[in-house]
């Protein structure tokens, strides 16, 4: 155990803490400190200073918070939540989790039903099929010009097979 006497500088380094809480120092250090204080009036006075000032500062009355503080802070937090929420990727990530889960569920359901879903070949147009508006875009050997006219008419009238000789022409 180190029993070297402490210098005033050594003592003052730990004096603040010693004045607040004796148990903050280990027993050996406390013994050396006390031995110094018994013989050094200057350090004893310093210890008193530390205790007195700490006590005066602790007597500082607590500040009263105004009644408007809570309301003003609540309004500021509302604003901050509104604007900051837009920029906060963490908040977005959290909020979008249910949406992402739903999307994932749809994708999974879609892939499990893919056998009954139309394939790309099903969407290929057949030049002989004149029952749909899409077929109007296909070239016709009879009259290539009427195709465009029929398409325009179909769009204007909403008739799916206008001018194509399809079911829409029946009775005209």
């Amino acid at each position: 155990m180190d029993e070297t006497p402490l210098s005033c500088d050594d003592v003052r380094r730990v004096l603040a803490r010693r004045s607040d809480d004796e148990s903050a120092l280990d027993a050996a250090m406390r013994a050396r400190l006390d031995a110094h204080l018994q013989t050094c009036a200057g350090c004893r006075a310093e210890l008193d200073t530390q205790r007195d000032v700490a006590a005066w500062l602790r007597s500082r009355p607590a500040d009263r918070v105004s009644q408007q503080f809570a309301a003003r802070l609540a309004a500021a937090l509302d604003d901050a939540t509104g604007w900051f929420g837009v920029a906060d990727w963490r908040a977005w990530t959290l909020r979008l989790t249910p949406v992402a889960a739903l999307l994932a569920a749809f994708v999974l359901l879609g892939s499990s039903q893919s056998e009954s879903s139309p394939t790309l070949d099903d969407w290929t147009l057949d030049a002989d099929d004149t029952s749909s508006t899409a077929s109007l875009l296909l070239p016709s050997d009879d009259n290539p010009d009427i195709r465009l006219d029929a398409l325009v008419e179909a769009i204007v009238t909403g008739d799916d097979a206008a001018g194509s000789g399809g079911p829409g022409d029946v009775g005209k």
Binding site: A16, E46, T49, Q50, D52, V53, A54, W56, L57
Partner: peptide, 16 residues
């Protein structure tokens, strides 16, 4: 921290 508190209190003594 100890050193700052020690010096701070020393300076405050004559004022308080």
């Amino acid at each position: 921290v100890e050193s700052r508190i020690f010096r701070g209190r020393q300076r405050l003594k004559p004022l308080l």
